[in-house]
Structure formats: structure tokens, C-alpha cells
């Protein structure tokens, strides 16, 4: 018997009165997308590991190549900057190194966040996974690279004879907040740059600028009273602080936590709304 048939009558649910219901439904779809992606953590951790493995296959020291080049950069720039600022390398180097390593984490999430979906096109067309899976992949993969870079931090801290204390544990919530903000940013930037390809270029040049505006190579007090405003209003500064300060054996300030957690929550809200609006369209933007 014929259990499927084509009907000629057109009954479509594009009735304007159902708009409000569909808005809430779309929000549910977006939240469900993020939730199911997070729940399937084994998948994106596996994907992240294999991507890192692929990148450095048949090299002797693998991902430590970036660590090595980072180490050389930090070594050279650290000494150069410390003589420029006329400060003791032993006190300046740990500050610069931890800040720069944290910056690399944030910067690479933003960079790769622009191509969250573009770089996963092959998978998106072949298999069904929640869109957020690819954002989790971007965020977690860069976190894995960050752990490699901690080797440079360890060497610098030993060189500067900085003692490590229990404040180091603050890095755990710090990285968790950064990881989640990374997911929101990868989703948002991924959607934006996918639909409007120009944004990738714009964001890349903004990131370059941001590195100099954020206190990584210089310290906020060097700018005097003006610097306080520039750094306090810059969310990147707070994100760097919640990773940098624990590594230096200091506790991040309440301000740092409030700014980062607040920023993350606002991003989460915008992401959920944006995802709920464009969830269906992402695949067509590819």
C-alpha cells in the first residue's frame, strides 16, 4: 500500500500570528544545538587532537615547533623591551611572557573563529552535527595548543626565580571562562564572516591593532592616568589578566572576573539570539 503520497493542497505555516511562537522555538533550537554539542565533548576533543596531529605530522617535535618559535620570540622581545622600558629582565620577562602566551590563545581563537564554518565545510555537507560542535572544536583546539606553550612560561618563570603559589589554581576558572567565551566568539564571528566575507579581513586587522592597545608588551601604569581608562574598558585586558595573574602567582581582581564573566554572558546571549535567527541558513551561506 501507498504510505507516502504527494498532496496538491498547499498548507504552509507562514502565518504571521505564529511568529511569536516560532521565536521561542528557534531559541530552543539554538540552545539545544549548543547543549548537544557540549554534551558530545568526546567528538570535538578527538577532532581537535587529530587536527593538531595532522598539522605537525612527520616533524620531530610536533606542536612544540610553535612553542619553540614562540620561545625565541619571547626571549628576544623580552630582553629588547625590558631594556627599552629600562626595567629588570627578571621582573619584566615573566610579565611579558605570560601576557603574550595568553594573548596567543585569545588571538588564535578569534582568528580561527572567523573560519569556524568555512574550514568545516566538508563535514557540514556530509554529516549532521550541531553547528556549535565546530565552535567547540576551535576553542578546545587552541586551548590544547596553549598547554604546549606553558612550557615556555615554565622556563621563563624558572629563569626569573618566580615562586609558584596556590593562586595558580585561579587559572582553572580563568581558562574555563576563556574557553566558553571562545565558543561564543567562534560562533558569532563564524556566522558573520561566513555571510559577509569582508569581515574576516576587518577582524584580522583589528586583532593586530588590539595587540598593541592591550597591555601585553607594556604595563598599564606606564600610560599614567589615561592608561587606566584604556585598560579598564578593554575586555581583552581582563581576559589576559585572568590567565596571566595566576601564572605569576597573583589572584585576579574582582573587576577582572566581573568583566570577563559579564562579557561572556552577554556574548552567550547575543550568540543564542543570532544562532536562533540564522540556524537554518548557515548551511546555505557556505
Amino acid at each position: 500500500m501507498n504510505t507516502f503520497q504527494s498532496t496538491t493542497s498547499v498548507i504552509l505555516d507562514n502565518n504571521p500570528t505564529t511568529d511569536k511562537v516560532s521565536f521561542i522555538q528557534n531559541i530552543k533550537v539554538a540552545i539545544n544545538d549548543i547543549y548537544s554539542a557540549l554534551k558530545n565533548y568526546k567528538l570535538w576533543i578527538f577532532m581537535g587532537f587529530s587536527e593538531i596531529r595532522r598539522r605537525y605530522r612527520r616533524t620531530l617535535i610536533g606542536p612544540f615547533w610553535t612553542t619553540l618559535s614562540l620561545g625565541i620570540f619571547i626571549g628576544c622581545m623580552g630582553f629588547l623591551l625590558s631594556s627599552l622600558w629600562k626595567s629588570d629582565p627578571r621582573s619584566f620577562m615573566p610579565y611579558f611572557c605570560t601576557g603574550y602566551v595568553s594573548w596567543i590563545l585569545i588571538q588564535s581563537i578569534l582568528h580561527e573563529g572567523c573560519v569556524t564554518f568555512m574550514s568545516s565545510e566538508a563535514y557540514m555537507r556530509q554529516i549532521f552535527l550541531p553547528h556549535s560542535t565546530y565552535a567547540c572544536l576551535v576553542s578546545s583546539r587552541n586551548l590544547m595548543v596553549f598547554f604546549h606553550h606553558l612550557l615556555v612560561v615554565a622556563i621563563v618563570l624558572v629563569y626569573a626565580r618566580t615562586s609558584i603559589n596556590l593562586n595558580l589554581l585561579y587559572i582553572i576558572p580563568g581558562l574555563i571562562v576563556t574557553f566558553f567565551t571562545g565558543i561564543w566568539m567562534s560562533l558569532l564571528l563564524g556566522m558573520l564572516c561566513l555571510r559577509f566575507r569582508d569581515f574576516q579581513q576587518i577582524i584580522n586587522s583589528l586583532i593586530q591593532l588590539a595587540m598593541f592597545v592591550t597591555p601585553i608588551m607594556w604595563q598599564p601604569h606606564q600610560l599614567g592616568s589615561k592608561g587606566l581608562i584604556v585598560t579598564q574598558l578593554n575586555p581583552l585586558h581582563h581576559y589576559i589578566s585572568i590567565i596571566r595573574m595566576p601564572l605569576l602567582g597573583q589572584a585576579p581582581t574582582l573587576d577582572n572576573w566581573m568583566y570577563t564573566i559579564g562579557f561572556s554572558l552577554i556574548c552567550a546571549l547575543i550568540t543564542i539570539i543570532a544562532l536562533s535567527k540564522h540556524h537554518k541558513k548557515i548551511i546555505f551561506w557556505l
Binding site: D13, M124, R125, I127, F128, I283
Partner: peptide, 20 residues
């Protein structure tokens, strides 16, 4: 059917694991 494209109108529902 695989869920890769969401329909513009109408409804798709399934029970059981779908593999494209």
C-alpha cells in the same frame, strides 16, 4: 532527511538513528 538542510516550511521528524 539527514538534518543537514532544515526545511523552510513543514516538519521533519524521525525516531531511531539516522546515518547519511
Amino acid at each position: 532527511l539527514a538534518g543537514i538542510y532544515a526545511p523552510t516550511h513543514g516538519k521533519v521528524s524521525h525516531h531511531g538513528k539516522v546515518t547519511p
